[in-house]
Amino acid sequence: MTAPITVFDVSINLHLRGLRTVHALLTKASSHPAAATLPSAKFHQDTASLAFHVKSCTNLAASGFALLTGTEEESAVWEEKKTLEELIAQVDKTIAKLEGGGGATKPMSTDLEGIEGKELTVTIPNFMFHLGMVYSVLRSQGVEVGKLDYLMPFMAGVAPGF
């Protein structure tokens, strides 16, 4: 019999897998000839920059972590970084924060009628949107990233063959 899936598993582990994808994409982008200009790059002229989308991913992951663990959100107030190296470091710090959380969580109802449930239902889809935008911005700027660059870090250790 397999262990039941917890809200912590669904939220924190989802954020960790997504942050590992962001890390891998940014690492690949760091060898691109235009790497210095990528943090300010946009998918379209009326959209936010790559740096904003990375900041949003880290802030949303940290906010979800704080929500589930009942901890302060000090790590959920990252400032927008200016270089790929700073963006990667920010992602690394957020991953370390989430990995250091263990399995300890404050009691949380699975009933999504409460304010906590509503916050969680907003955090995850927003995180996934910004994760997709990180990929899209890099791809639009000529960084050679493809489907497997997105999926492999995200699915590592979760699905057979990844």
Rank of each mutant, 00 (worst) to 15 (best):
D111M: 06
L26M: 12
P39E: 05
T37Y: 00
F129Y: 15
L68Y: 01
L19S: 08
P153H: 12
T71N: 13
N59V: 11
P107D: 14
P4N: 08
A3N: 14
G132L: 09
L67M: 07
Q45G: 09
G132V: 08
K106E: 11
K97D: 06
A41C: 06
L50I: 09
E80W: 01
S56A: 15
G114L: 13
L60N: 06
T58H: 02
P125E: 04
F65G: 02
A36Y: 00
R17N: 15
S56H: 06
R139I: 06
G70N: 03
L38D: 01
A3G: 05
V143G: 06
L151Y: 13
F127I: 10
T58Q: 01
L112C: 05
T27F: 05
P125Y: 01
S30N: 11
L151V: 12
A104I: 09
F43I: 04
F162M: 15
L26H: 04
L87E: 09
K97S: 10
P4T: 11
D9T: 10
L60A: 08
H44W: 10
G18S: 07
F154N: 03
G142T: 08
R139F: 10
T94A: 13
S40T: 14
L14S: 15
Q90C: 14
L16F: 06
G157W: 13
T2Q: 10
L25G: 02
D46Y: 08
S109D: 14
A66H: 07
D46F: 08
A61F: 01
G101L: 09
A3T: 15
H130K: 09
K97W: 07
A48V: 06
I95W: 03
T110Q: 08
M128N: 13
L14Y: 00
G103C: 00
L26K: 08
F162T: 13
V91L: 12
R17E: 04
A29W: 02
G64W: 00
L50H: 02
V77Q: 13
G101E: 05
K81D: 03
T123M: 12
Y135A: 07
G114C: 13
Y135C: 02
T110A: 08
V158G: 00
S30D: 11
I115L: 11
A61C: 09
L138C: 07
V145D: 05
V143M: 10
G100I: 11
I124K: 01
T105S: 14
T83I: 03
S40W: 00
S75E: 09
N126S: 14
F52G: 00
D92E: 15
F52Q: 00
E74T: 13
T27N: 11
